[in-house]
Design a protein around this nucleic acid. Structure first.
Lengths: 263, 263
DNA sequence: CAGTGGTCTAGACCACACT
DNA sequence: GTGTGGTCTAGACCACTGC
């Protein structure tokens, strides 16, 4: 049966008189399995931090060999959607209790030590509901005028205000988010999004520029106006490449730097 | 024989009375195979762009199963050291003819089109031999005073000078590099390093900051002094994590941005 | 057609974690 | 010990490339 659709899966266009697809759209069994596991992840069948069924169980469920399930999970692990722990199981990745916290924050102290300075202090400057501008709507795949939440905050390291950022979130998914919630939660903001709103950020893209601090930025970051700052625009995505957050940050880079690994 | 050292490999401490290692230093067969293939890559047994032996051949050579070789090559492919092509073979990765040229250059035109503007025009400002400063020596794992080459150049897109960068290269490995060579070669600089000096860059790390253009930078990039610029400091490594290039660039980000994917 | 990488299976055994 | 993921093997067949 190798390489054809397994008994458990109704392959697309499996009937004899189905319209012929120009591209056969052949997809390996393990990718189909990966898709099914992905669906369960999206549907919340297993919550972040929880273990998913063992490879043997999944193999039985989908009526394929363990090796095929293994390859599917390997893919998901490579995409950081899932974490394997030998002897324990495979767990849904989470921004909480992940030993690498702040996975998406690439700003490092020049001293090198990743977090010798400890977690950032958060200060919420503003948190309000408003209607999406054309620009925000485009980034979040909404319509202009749709409800969005905007949060402005300052992150400080060792008492020094270092990051000033605005977050825009789709109002529908983040109904009820408050400034207190943003400020009070211990740990990464994305961890709070998982716990409070069931929104799990999976990947993000950033566009980075150098800008000069305007009057307001200068005041909030306690630097002279015109100071060069790193402008970081991020769009973060959940499952299925659905954008769920637009973030515009300005970073001071006098004592920190943005670190990136190329390979 | 699964999981123990194969007949072809003399495992460390395989004799019965060998000194006991505090850490058993267990390493899977496929990682040992990976290490052997890596050695051949470093030694230049197969040159960039060439095909390495087929999985069956390698399996025979190392006396292991094809699946084990496969896993080793999978790892190497994931690290971009090697490229698999179904039906053709597995090839040593190269910065030449790689369909993604300029793999390490993350600066994109705001227009989005990755290379609608075509390749950059290069202008060599300076190219000289000198002795490594303490800072350069540290980055390149040399001793202060060792010979290094320094190249200063400007990259322009559509006639607009956009990148000003200095490169420092170990004098020993790049003996004879000239300004003409830097300017004349078509294609990525790292491709030239492969062809002319047998140096293949495998990965790199970048530290990014925002700075204000000084007088010289402003003049060379044709912007007003004080213009915010992206400062990008890169250390590029060959096999075995040996640093082979220090690069300090300043980027104009008025029409371009540094793009980064987080996952 | 033969040769290559890609997929799938079935079974064995190892390393690790918990109980 | 039991159950988990991790490794290794052997064999079969599929998909792609080029002769």
């Amino acid at each position: 049966m190798a390489h054809t659709s397994p008994s458990a899966l109704s392959d697309i266009a499996s009937s004899a008189d189905a319209p012929v697809q120009p591209t056969p759209a052949f997809s390996p069994l393990y990718q189909q399995i990966k898709g099914l596991i992905l669906q369960s992840l999206q549907a919340g069948e297993w919550k972040p931090g929880e273990a998913i069924p063992s490879e043997m169980d999944l193999a039985a469920r989908y009526r394929v060999s363990q090796g095929t399930v293994r390859k599917a999970i390997d893919d998901l692990a490579a995409e950081n959607l899932v974490v394997r722990r030998q002897g324990k199981g495979t767990f849904v990745a989470t921004h909480s209790e992940q030993h690498v916290q702040y996975r998406f924050l690439k700003l490092m102290p020049d001293s090198g030590d990743q977090d010798s300075e400890g977690p950032a202090q958060r200060q919420i400057v503003d948190c309000k509901r408003l209607r999406a501008s054309a620009e925000v709507a485009r980034a979040l795949a909404l319509r202009s005028g749709d409800a969005v939440l905007q949060v402005r905050r300052i992150l400080s390291f060792g008492g020094v205000p270092t990051i000033l950022e605005d977050l825009w979130l789709p109002g529908a998914a983040f109904k009820g988010l408050s400034a207190e919630q943003m400020a009070g939660y211990q740990g990464p903001t994305y961890a709070m999004f998982e716990v409070e709103f069931g929104v799990r950020m999976v990947r993000a893209e950033e566009k980075i520029r150098a800008i000069a601090a305007d009057a307001q930025q200068a005041q909030l970051l306690q630097v002279p106006p015109g100071t060069p700052l790193l402008s970081v625009e991020r769009v973060a995505y959940t499952y299925n490449d659905i954008p769920m957050e637009l973030r515009r940050g300005v970073y001071r880079t006098d004592t920190h730097h943005y670190r990136n690994a190329l390979s």
